[in-house]
Design a protein around this nucleic acid. Structure first.
Lengths: 246, 246
DNA sequence: TGCACTATGTACGGGATAGCACATAATCCA
DNA sequence: TGGATTATGTGCTATCCCGTACATAGTGCA
């Protein structure tokens, strides 16, 4: 361990992001000087469609939703990133695509680093590059699975997937989100979410109240969710076996 | 230019894959010794879910469909790769994900290279790495866009997108595919494809007959297609400006 | 406490697509 | 040439979800 002031302050926090935590200690110490702890508020947009990237974010306890927007204004979530990953790495090279954006959907903290610095480190190859590329593949899997999930699975199952993917990236079993917000993320009507959530509540799996969803029976939720949840989760662990999400 | 026999034979072919064609001549010459021209027949599976990758394919005039399969057997296309790209690079590191596979959907040729050799070259960094990573990002965009397209756009528009993305990767304006096949790729019913294609034929945009689709009016097709086609195409050109697909 | 605002509940009609069944047409091959 | 096979056409019902409209219930603040 280093002994500089920066190290002492930031090093323990780094390990809260599991992607950073997989890196060798030496590398992590070097990065520590460039990493900055920031608070992310719900609804905050980390990057907008078509923008050049300024920072890459490694969430510690915040959760970020990657979305794809259409001209009509409707949009859908293509992936969710929490303390298991990073926001912006897929777009490290070449700026953002036209229609994609990253929005904080659960407030908390993240470590951020300027894209330049990270890119320079990335181009050295080695552990960082390998780690980020593995994560990139896991992200691709999540997006691909979401594609077929959108086509074949009902709203109720997608809601389960949505909740479980977030639970895995949180300390508590309480999700802060209104039906309205969930509807926007899933790209469905608010009423459809109300109906699906109502069923789950009637069955005793969850309890919600004005923007707070309490997950009461995680096991049953896992029994109800479509395979997509397991595929994505399994893939994360295959590629990044050090991750400790449930 | 080199003067060995291998160079003479294969070098002109390399330039038919536009991703390879963007590479510096020196690098291309080195790769030429490891590249092998193979014929890909329709329906041929380049890799299966969960397999370790043996080769990476750079199509010259063949077209490959990347699919994601569900337990139920239904599946959907998540991206299409032709002479503008490569099959398998996203999975160069860490083997295939559980549910993804690559199927040849239009017969033709491809240059292939063993994953080991390519990976070694990739890890050198430089032009090849940069080129493949840019392509990877374009692929991600295609997948992400397909996600929202699946949710918000009708079958007719998706059919237009499907045809246009293939036309761009072919020399002719004739697509060899039955309604049945298209239905499987889009993840919809065969009858729905028949209906959508029937409309397009009635409007004079296409003419089909027993597994051959002739595109008569490309412009009108572009007028009818959803924005997803333009987004994907635009993104390919932004990231790989040397590409010459229409 | 009461009012404004936000969140959730419910109901109705309509459209797109699924699932199924079967008819017709084109192609291939013996 | 004729029969088998493959490809396409069509019609039904069922289901899921959307769009809309409006009712009710919690929450926060003056």
């Amino acid at each position: 361990m280093g002994s500089s002031r920066v190290d002492q302050l930031i090093l323990p926090v780094l390990y809260k992001n599991q992607l950073l935590a997989t890196l060798p200690a030496v590398l992590l110490q070097r990065l520590a000087f460039a990493l900055e702890l920031v608070r992310l508020e719900t609804g905050c947009v980390l990057y907008e469609s078509g923008e050049r990237l300024h920072h890459v974010y490694f969430p510690t306890n915040s959760i970020v939703s990657l979305r794809c927007e259409l001209e009509s204004g409707s949009s859908g979530e293509i992936a969710v990133v929490g303390n298991d990953g990073a926001v912006g790495i897929a777009w490290l090279l070449g700026g953002q695509p036209q229609t994609s954006q990253a929005v904080v959907c659960s407030a908390g903290f993240a470590l951020r680093i300027t894209a330049d610095v990270l890119l320079r480190e990335f181009e050295h190859g080695g552990a960082l590059q390998h780690c980020l590329l593995c994560y990139m593949q896991a992200l691709i899997t999540q997006t691909a699975q979401t594609t077929v999930c959108n086509r074949f699975h009902g709203i109720e199952q997608q809601l389960c997937r949505w909740m479980l993917l977030r639970l895995d990236r949180m300390a508590s079993n309480e999700l802060l989100a209104t039906h309205e917000l969930i509807a926007i993320m899933l790209g469905v009507r608010r009423e459809s979410v109300t109906q699906a959530a109502g069923k789950l509540q009637a069955a005793g799996l969850i309890h919600y109240k004005h923007g707070r969803i309490l997950v009461l029976d995680r096991q049953q939720l896992e029994a109800l969710v479509c395979e997509c949840y397991a595929v994505v989760t399994h893939e994360y662990h295959r590629l990044l076996p050090q991750l400790t999400t449930h």
